[in-house]
Design a protein around this nucleic acid. Sequence first.
RNA 1: GGGUCUAUAGCUCAGUUGGUCAGAGCGCACGCCUGAUAAGCGUGAGGUCGGUAGUUCAAAUCUACCUAGACCCA
Length: 931
Amino acid sequence: MSYKDTINLPNTEFPMRANLSERELDFQKIWEENNIYEKAVKNREGKESFILHDGPPYANGDIHIGHALNKILKDFVTRFATLKGYYSPYVPGWDTHGLPIEHQVKSEMSDQERKDLSVEELREKCTNYALKYIDRQREQFKRLGVWGEWDAPYLTLSPEYEVKQIEVFGEMAKKDLFYRGKKPVHWCPHCETALAEAEVEYGEDRAPSIYVKFPLKEKFEVGGVSLNKDNSYVVIWTTTPWTLPANMAIAFHPEYPYVVVEAEGENLIMAKELVSNVMEISGIEEYEIISDEFSAKELENKKCRHPFEDRDSLLILGEHVTLEQGTGCVHTAPGHGHDDFVVGHQEYGLDVYAPMDNRGYFTEKAGDFAGKSTDEVNIMVTDKLKEKNLLMDLSFIDHQYPHCWRCKGNLLFRATDQWFASIDAIKEKTLKAISEVEWHPSWGEERMKNMISERSDWCISRQKKWGVPIPIFYCDDCEEAVINDDTLDSVKKIFAVEGSSAWYKYPAEKLLPKDYSCPHCDGSSFTKEEDIMDVWFDSGSSHKAVLETRENLSWPAQIYLEGTDQYRGWFNSSLLTAVATEGRAPYNEVITNGFTVDDKGNKMSKSQGNVVSPHKVIDQYGADILRLWVASSDFKNDVKVSDNILKQNSEVYRRIRNTYRFVLGNVSDFDKEKNYVKYEDRKELDRWIMIRLQDLIKKVTSAYEKYEYHRVYHDVHNFCTVEMSSLYMDITKDRLYTDGTDSLSRRSAQSTLYDIMMALVVMLAPLLPHTSEEVWQFLGDKVAAKESVFLSDWPELKKAYYDQELTAKWADLLNIRKDVSKALELARADKKIGNSLEAGVELKGASEAQLELLENELEQLADLFIVSQVELNDQLSEGEAYLGEESSVLVKVNEAKGDKCDRCWKYDESVGKGEEHKDICNRCASVIESE
RNA sequence: GGGUCUAUAGCUCAGUUGGUCAGAGCGCACGCCUGAUAAGCGUGAGGUCGGUAGUUCAAAUCUACCUAGACCCA
């Protein structure tokens, strides 16, 4: 007869193959329909808050693997916090304003449509565009298994958000942190608009190339020669002669050597390395370097005369000067160049002068050049220079020049009025705030401090339409800028109802309080500011706009968690607005994740073909595998991802899943109410693994608290593989299958498996929510009280379980087990045995203590080694036995005595001797009898 | 060019304040099992700790330089 029916084999419907890509959707549906997220959060109402504030992704395009990494990490944080007992609601958000969307919307229109478009229409289209992508991304984020208030996210374009944002702006304005200044921007004279760097295209263009002599203002000595102002010059080179009227300075590199060259009776200052170049280009054959090399530091703050304006030109130092072209002496017009602005204006305080109108024509201030175009001025300038004999050379060259993305025309670099936030005013406070934040990893503090220390003032203005208007008015009479509580309250009221598009819909009078008059001059007519705010001001206000306005949130946030690029971005702008308004950082902790790179550590790019798409991963493997990949990586560094890496994670997943499956199969007849064996009454091996489980709980909990998910991953995986699968489950199978159904030994094992399962499923729930929920549902009646794993509690660490004596004893026994395994393998290689149950083992301890141990535990050794018999033999010698490397025990492997029991498959001398059950051993016979 | 980082077996990670032959799991190879079976068990082979030069009795661990890579800025 077959005895298979008399044993308790695993029994479960829990599928070995997960089929995650399809089944995950079922669980997501269950969560959504039953409001599990809401219930889980509500479950912790009144408990300590743990608020992770979401950095808003930009509402454009589909999510990529970097988004997935970041959002999944956030999900780990909030799910763990909730299970651990914190009140941790998660409100996701989106960043919706800004150039890329405006750009995209415009480029989808014909030229005519674009021309006919009103600002309000444009903004409506932008709104729709953003909303469309929010919907798309929302579904994609939800598909990752990220939970949160997806039905009520925060959007930077929502009226309530905009109101808070201009409130933040107003608070800063009241503290006098804003000022109006000029700054050069890319300007298209045809489209009459400023362009962002993304809208600039560089292309070949023909330009005049001129070398110009600037006369010294006074005589000075340098490099051992004395220079006379009548015949001594600094030589500059430029390809934009029209910017010369705005010249304010000449920049020299502080480190390169300069010299004086004598040529044609004149003394010329230039970089030593470029002398021969310049002479060759200018066609001068006879020249001589008449000075020693000298540092430009000797020239700093001396002056030249402007070649044709009634003005001086200051000699200054700048690291941006190169020796690739020109003379090493750089014409500097702070109104017409970026470096010129930074060095000339911000470092040397020179005027930002750009006498030019929106169409690119020179203004009245430009004197002779008034009304002229840049092309005309190019010619006039060179003529003037020739006239004064200050033009060393004129030629034409082809070079890379910026063009407008739309009309393809040449761009100008031109200073326009901008609003700035003064960083200097709050720098000290900000640096202090940084040191009060906990940075993970810790180098973040230094990175942030360096960044803030070096940061110059924040240009808030953007000459665009898709954004939050800068809520400032200008009095038409006195031209003063007006912003105060009265004007702000009025604007806020209107924005709260109609959103910030109202700024474009209504004239200033409607936006201001009724009959408002200028606080400076009593004037009653006003003009609105046309610029919008930098989008970093949008998201940088989120801590106020979200944390302060939502009832379930609170300021400041416990955590910001973003990619490392956000030191410059969101961490930075949020910090500045928070310090400006509240005097401290908006976060207690900042965590950063690295970027996703390919398996060689290179960044992903379409052209490299190494891009891993989260959608594909989900289709092929499932979101839980993607999440496992996130968990497996030390995200503080850059995170590698490739097919191979994902495949590896799916193998790890399989091991975890099969551990669950084994347990589920073996507790199918287990009723916790009736069959649970309490810890003290369990078998030693069961107690041993329970202690191992406590170690695991301790390690895993601590790893979660430190955001070290890769430690969770490794610890849990090792536990499943080493402790559980190859040891505990392998050994316990015999008890579970063949001992009496209701025997203490079997119930003891089941109770243990149950305890382990309950701890594991909760501990992995933040990482593998779908699988954990699936397991939870399969536990069925046993956990009926809780409808979802996410409504349960974090496993409790049972310190009382610890038992040093037992732990030490089992460490010894398991060492011996390793040696026995090795000995069995040798026997197997000799074809003496196949299955280890075909073996009987003889042992000899290597020490008194070990001999005693073996003697005491003899009873359970066969089960522990999964062999049929174990005997002690103090006659064993090294010649006939294997000497264990781990424990020094001597092991001799023999064929097992007796015959194979048909029921438990062990060999035993009692087999074949029974009356009723001939083919099975005594133990099995008695089990059958008693069932 | 500047700021901040990273570099340990094919892969993912451990390696406290420098000190026993550098560890784990996976993968791989080989074997076993066929009552966890598109599972499970065992054994084994894989590393000049990115490179070079130093400090030291002693360095994967400290210093300098170099190489490769990442983010931000210029």
